[in-house]
Write a protein that binds this DNA or RNA. Structure first.
Lengths: 146, 146
DNA sequence: TTCCTTGCAAAACTTTTGCATTAAA
DNA sequence: TTTAATGCAAAAGTTTTGCAAGGAA
């Protein structure tokens, strides 16, 4: 049993990470397991630096380059999803099911919006030679009254 | 008459830029006029570096810092709109009227989608204490068949 | 004079890359 | 043994900032 998966819950997460990585054709190395276990522990949005900090705090020995390269690998294989909500940095979403987002610009908070909460009664046809690959919807929020 | 506004059309653009800057409470300095004239010449999406290159090519003497600072000023005053479609860099949209975008991920092309082309028959209520500040909708496109 | 704006260079920040080392199949 | 993954440092790319100089009110 690995040191980082000491509790039953952590073992569950680790097992699920490994299964999903293999399903995505990703070899589950030690570092990739650590990174996946942080991000896939629950539905959440984390930056590369947040993930690196979390790994360091838990004593894991993972380099910055590996974190970035691994997150790019995960995103390209569909294990996670990369978001562009602000220009400052990339956010990685552990929820790859189709969904949208609320974005509180003041706090930076991102909140998932399930697909059934949004209905389009009209959408433009894609330009000739193209088809819709996906829809990124971000509902920007401000504090009431401001 | 300024060298950069030699044609009648350029004078029109310059006059419109000046009017809009004053309306937004922005003092129309020489550099700001040059930057606004590039971006506001037509509805378009440009990066800071593209604007800088365009200015340099037309012989304007504007520093990189001023381009970035001015674009941020314009965006904060509502003269232009900053877009986050890819993580790589910020895009500045000369069209501040509400609208959405197609985004061809392969080519990077951004195409405006007018508001009437999209209808929402259902939207989630904003979380308590917040209200909707705006809706960013990006319809990602891929080449047909790929 | 006073305040605002600009330019330059340097710094800050995020992300990528080259390459030697290590680990895995 | 052969290939793939990792770590480190350096580089690359974008954006911001400190500060001196210049320009407008």
């Amino acid at each position: 049993m690995d040191a980082f998966a000491s509790s039953l819950q952590e073992q569950d997460i680790a097992a699920r990470c490994q299964r999903r990585m293999v399903d995505c054709g990703i070899r589950p190395t030690a570092q990739r397991m650590r990174i996946a276990s942080v991000l896939l522990a629950e539905p959440q949005h984390l930056s590369a630096e947040q993930i690196l900090a979390s790994l360091r705090q838990s004593g894991a020995r993972v380099s910055k380059a590996t974190v970035y390269n691994t997150l790019n690998l995960f995103a390209s294989r569909g294990l996670i999803r990369q978001l562009s909500v602000d220009g400052a940095r990339a956010w990685f979403d552990s929820n790859v099911d189709a969904h949208y987002h609320f974005h509180d610009v003041a706090t930076g908070a991102l909140i998932d919006v399930p697909v059934p909460e949004v209905e389009f009664s009209r959408l433009p046809p894609p330009p000739p030679g193209t088809e819709v690959d996906g829809i990124d919807l971000v509902i920007r929020l401000r504090k009431t009254g401001s």
